[in-house]
């Protein structure tokens, strides 16, 4: 009986010590594995759009693509001046601010949306055939299922007060496959 008790005690010790060890090692291991949670998406600041001159975009409903550059951190690498996103810019009226600005990222699953062969007819995403009009709304018609869960993601914009050619955009990446625009963190 004493032997049985001793064995039980030793087993208890083994399991207890094992649990302590598992915790001492386990907490750092899990923290290490989920470390990417600290890597935040770049803050949505107003950034200049390069590659386009606003005063030259005069034609209505003809999308033009612009590029947004900024510092980009990729784990250890610092890219001082990297393309962090692209936008489609569409003129919707005669006023200087009558513009629409969309990200080129498809709200379906993130491919980059292309302009149609006939630009004024809107956009098509080359991956799963999501189609959008020049105002960013999804195409709806009989016999065609649009995979996109929401319209193209419009972005807040401004015009540089000192330079009428310079478009400024608050560039944000939104989550895919959601019905609403939810910024990625």
């Amino acid at each position: 009986m004493a032997d049985e008790e001793r064995r039980t005690f030793l087993k208890l010790c083994i399991h207890g010590l094992g649990a302590v060890f598992a915790a001492v090692l386990g907490v750092p291991v899990v923290s290490y594995l989920i470390d990417p949670r600290h890597r935040q998406a770049a803050a949505g600041e107003m950034r200049p759009v390069s590659g386009i001159r606003l005063t030259e975009i005069t034609e209505l409903n003809r999308p033009v693509q612009g590029v947004i550059r900024d510092v980009r951190r990729d784990a250890w690498t610092l890219h001082p001046n990297d393309v962090i996103g692209r936008v489609w810019v569409v003129r919707s009226g005669p006023g200087p601010r009558d513009l629409r600005v969309f990200t080129t990222v498809c709200p379906h699953l993130g491919c980059s949306i292309n302009v149609n062969a006939e630009p004024t007819s809107g956009f098509t995403c080359p991956c799963h055939n999501g189609q959008f009009l020049c105002d960013g709304n999804r195409v709806r018609r009989d016999g065609y299922t649009n995979p996109a869960p929401r319209d193209m993601d419009s972005l807040e914009f401004d015009i540089d007060p000192e330079n009428p050619d310079q478009l400024l955009v608050r560039y944000v990446n939104f989550k895919q496959a959601e019905n609403e625009k939810i910024p990625r963190t």
Partner: peptide, 20 residues
Amino acid sequence: STAWSSVYFIQYEMDFGWLI
């Protein structure tokens, strides 16, 4: 061009990377 940098990142930037 990446090996040292990734080890640096483990050692100094990742949670408990220094311990692992």
